[in-house]
Design a protein around this nucleic acid. Structure first.
Length: 361
DNA sequence: TAGACGTGGCT
DNA sequence: TAGCCAAGTCT
């Protein structure tokens, strides 16, 4: 009786969720209108932008992006440096590098059309388990099991899975599989994510508004706010570094960071090593008289906190630090350089703390 | 498999 | 404020 009742309830979950989605779906610029086919390029782009990034941040960036590169062919033909600069501020820059690689692979290896299966999509750079499933379901209607952080939260509560993440992932995925319908797989995935984003939120879930609260075991047990449980995190170490601001006339020296690693492939201000104790002027791009400012810039990364000292100098005759990827960039044009936030903060601190040390009256 | 990999907003 | 969280992927 109990098992039978439970089974019936679970079968009704997708239907209830889809009915709710039909009236409550969020209006987002990458979603197709009802009856309109989804554009795989827009679905893919939005999914990549939304990785670990809020809808509020992505919305304007997505719109500007598709205005500039309206198709996968346009993106494939773009200059990679322009793409990286356009991504500046969004973080996780491997996403932008992989966006270009994947676009070029679609054009070169798939005749300009995205693969229409989860397995085919999964083979493209930057498409992991989640994104491949999401694009397959949303753009192509494939029944794929789409599990992101929203779905993990909804499912962990719905089935009262108390095992902490990440150990709970296999059980959560299996449970998600049992409620994924064959029809409207894309709408179902988006319904789950909308539910997680607006009702089944991490803190203070609005259970009274939930279309499936009658089926929710965590709610019945009164434990929804502490699910999903999570393993404890490590403390973040503190590191120190120095940013070097070298002027020549009305320009400042920028470098291009190595393709791999932190802020990879991005334009940047030169820095020395990022280490456990303040490194002073170690790693300066040219020898010379540097002036250390009193101001410092603090920046938090996912896995460490960074405090940067700011050193300024003026290039002298013969100063040619220019390694590959070095360029003298007009200071007035700095916003167009597409600097990661860390360096944009430093540039602001330097240009506001000190009048230009270059030509001035 | 656990750690690397950004950033901004909220509490 | 310090920490947590947001439509993850790669190695």
């Amino acid at each position: 009786m109990d098992a039978k009742h439970s089974s019936i309830a679970e079968q009704s979950i997708p239907a209830q969720l889809l009915a709710w989605y039909d009236v409550a779906a969020r209006d987002l610029p990458w979603r197709s209108r009802p009856g309109q086919a989804a554009d795989p390029y827009r679905v893919w782009l939005s999914e990549v932008m939304l990785q670990q990034t809020t809808v509020a941040t992505v919305r304007p960036r997505f719109t500007a992006w598709v205005d500039r590169w309206p198709s996968v062919a346009a993106l494939a033909a773009a200059d990679e440096a322009d793409v990286m600069a356009a991504w500046a501020g969004l973080g996780y820059y491997a996403r932008a590098r992989n966006l270009v690689k994947a676009a070029r692979a679609v054009v070169a290896d798939h005749g300009g059309a995205f693969p229409d299966t989860e397995a085919g999509l999964r083979a493209l750079p930057g498409l992991g388990a989640y994104t491949a499933a999401a694009v397959a379901a949303i753009a192509f209607g494939e029944r794929a099991v789409v599990v992101d952080a929203n779905v993990e939260r909804v499912v962990a509560r719905l089935f009262a899975i108390e095992t902490p993440l990440p150990a709970a992932r296999p059980a959560i995925r299996a449970a998600a599989d049992t409620i994924t319908p064959d029809a409207r797989a894309g709408d179902f995935a988006q319904a789950m994510m909308d539910l997680g984003a607006t009702i089944c939120t991490s803190r203070r879930p609005r259970c009274l508004l939930c279309p499936i609260r009658a089926d929710c075991r965590a709610h019945a047990a009164g434990i929804e706010e502490r699910l999903p449980a999570k393993a404890a995190k490590r403390a973040k170490p503190q590191r120190y570094g120095t940013i070097f601001w070298l002027e020549r006339g009305a320009c400042v020296l920028l470098v291009r960071r190595l393709d791999k690693g932190l802020l990879g492939g991005m334009r940047a201000l030169p820095t020395g090593p990022w280490v456990e104790a303040p490194p002073g002027l170690a790693g300066a791009p040219v020898a010379g008289r540097w002036r250390l400012l009193d101001d410092r810039v603090a920046h938090g990364f996912t896995h460490f906190d960074l405090e940067l000292a700011l050193a300024t100098g003026v290039a002298q005759a013969g100063d040619e630090p220019a390694g590959e990827g070095s360029e003298w960039w007009p200071i007035a044009d700095l916003p167009r350089a597409g600097l990661p936030t860390l360096f944009a903060k430093a540039a602001t601190a330097i240009t506001t703390a000190t009048p230009s040390t270059g030509d001035r009256e």
